[in-house]
Write a protein that binds this DNA or RNA. Structure first.
Lengths: 166, 166
DNA sequence: CTCAGTGCAAACCGTTTGCAGAACG
DNA sequence: CGTTCTGCAAACGGTTTGCACTGAG
């Protein structure tokens, strides 16, 4: 968790975006930004709401959604969907702005890693498919170390032998 | 689009899965499987429903959802979420069962490619994080050749200069 | 002052579920 | 014949929206 001293400039950056867009810098917008910038975790809207409540801020969900939309537009925050049925938000002002995610199928934990190989992959699809990459998403799902040590297994419930297809 | 001759064995494979699980092979389940296996596209539930309707089958959405759930469980079909607000389904009986996706931000088109580099990436996260990969998802978003030639541009609406953060 | 933002509650929309009647095995 | 499925419609849950009121500039 960052300390307040590091968060302030990030919130101010969001303020600058709002000013550039001619939008008011409201107390609610600053509070939401403050919460998002104060952690390196991937927060859900519910978690953001609870975090605000804990610090005495009572801000409606609609406002949180609307502010997150602005934060995502400003490119200061990234929206993720890890298949949980809701979105998560992560600020992009970390030392490693572009990174990929490891997601544990057992505990739902998220870890980050970088994958320089993707530059080459993007170059190849550009060459071979004439595709112009703008952004990507790489997620590896599996079992984290702790869950493996706790004996977790990846369930397999498919056909007993799916091969012999062709 | 595959021809009927190639689809039948796939549908039968699904039948085998149902039998293994002690579940009835109903006419509706076969019809849904038939539609999914008869194309290499990434179908939405609405598209599946319409396709069924075109061939005279009138099957409720609930049944389609329930059948897709079985198809995904059997591992014969993969579920995708390309961020459109709904899911898409793709059968896994193509010559290239594991592949990644290119998604055009302009026209929404989807192309497939393979990325052998990911084996190495998975090996590295296993070594460095003790993570045991089960499956992954790599999607590259950008502009396809056609949309580029039509003059499409990737919109940038973020801060005019987001750097100078640290 | 004026225009946009906020909060509430209702609307939305893809998906899931409960239940009476229909089919599979 | 019993168990599971199907279809309908209602419920669900995250997200969005309409509207009267509040607040920023």
């Amino acid at each position: 968790m960052n300390t307040g001293a590091q968060i302030a400039p990030f919130v101010r950056l969001f303020g600058r975006y709002l000013r550039e867009q001619g939008l008011p810098i409201t107390q609610q917008r600053e509070a939401v930004a403050q919460v998002v910038f104060s952690t390196d975790q991937h927060l859900s809207v519910d978690e953001i709401e609870e975090s605000l409540r804990e610090q005495g801020e009572r801000i409606g969900k609609a406002t949180i959604y609307r502010t997150l939309d602005l934060l995502v537009r400003s490119q200061l925050v990234e929206e993720h969907d890890f298949g949980e049925g809701f979105k998560r938000y992560e600020h992009r002002l970390s030392p490693q702005p572009v990174h990929e995610h490891l997601i544990c199928l057992e505990c739902g934990g998220v870890w980050e890693f970088t994958s320089p190989e993707l530059d080459e992959v993007e170059g190849r699809v550009a060459r071979e498919h004439g595709f112009r990459p703008a952004r990507h998403r790489l997620e590896i799902y599996g079992l984290c170390r702790e869950c493996q040590e706790a004996g977790a297994e990846i369930p397999y419930e498919g056909l007993t032998c799916p091969i012999e297809t062709v």
